[in-house]
Design a protein around this nucleic acid. Structure first.
Length: 213
DNA sequence: AGCACGATTAACT
DNA sequence: GTTAATCGTGCTC
């Protein structure tokens, strides 16, 4: 079992819709000087290339969207609403601008760090939004384009709790404004049916193993 | 050079 | 439910 091994480039070299579903239950790891922050991914959204009119790549390759056109398994971090950084994983092959937005996690490590930044509200609200995650984990533009497939990286993703794709909640993506149909309503947002259950599974199945390794 | 807009959040009513 | 905060991006002039 290779708990701490980051997902490979091959893992990311698929459509964003496929990767977005497989990332539910996976673990997002942020390694910084002060320690490690990690959480189980509970919510993702898939953005699929220039034809997806909800995807930033709809405008073609620009300085902002360029990372999405790069190799799979890299980070794509961009600013929204002038103040919030959002973290995405680049998926699919080069020149195919797909990405998965990470929208929700359940914290499992680095609680002290997270609390120092997000502790002004109830714990269940600490990391239940895409910009809350980047705040909690101190992710910003400096992490744009970094390689997520090597363990020495400041950020990587790895196998966590297994969730069947059929069990996932599927809904339209959030905040698409006046994006035309069918893109506005296509169900490319994925949620774990029971985030708390993921946390408990992690506690029972993964955490004990990590202590013994 | 200027401008409208947004893959959000928090603090309001 | 409504709205302000805040700024990089892409489009228009």
């Amino acid at each position: 079992m290779q708990i701490q091994q980051p997902f490979s480039q091959e893992f990311y070299n698929r459509s964003a819709v496929a990767v977005a579903q497989d990332l539910i239950g996976a673990i997002l790891v942020r390694q910084e000087k002060n320690g490690t922050i990690a959480g189980i991914i509970t919510e993702t959204e898939a953005y699929c290339g220039e034809t997806d009119l909800a995807c930033h790549a709809k405008a073609g390759k620009t300085k902002r969207t360029e990372p999405m056109y790069g190799p799979p398994g890299r980070a794509f971090v961009y600013l929204t609403y002038g103040m919030h950084w959002l973290f995405n994983c680049v998926t699919n092959q080069e020149e195919e601008p797909d990405a998965v937005l990470i929208r929700g996690i359940v914290p499992i490590e680095g609680l002290v760090q997270i609390e120092s930044r997000r502790g002004h509200q109830p714990q269940n609200l600490w990391t239940n939004g895409p910009a809350k995650i980047t705040q909690a984990m101190h992710i910003n533009k400096f992490h744009n384009k970094i390689d997520l497939t090597i363990e020495s990286s400041a950020i990587f993703l790895t196998k966590g709790v297994f969730v069947k794709n059929e069990e996932l909640l599927r809904n339209p993506r959030i905040g698409l404004g006046k994006t035309p149909e069918p893109w506005k309503s296509i169900p490319w947002r994925f949620n774990a049916p029971d985030p708390q259950a993921l946390f408990l599974s992690y506690q029972n199945e993964i955490a004990p193993f990590l202590k013994n390794r």
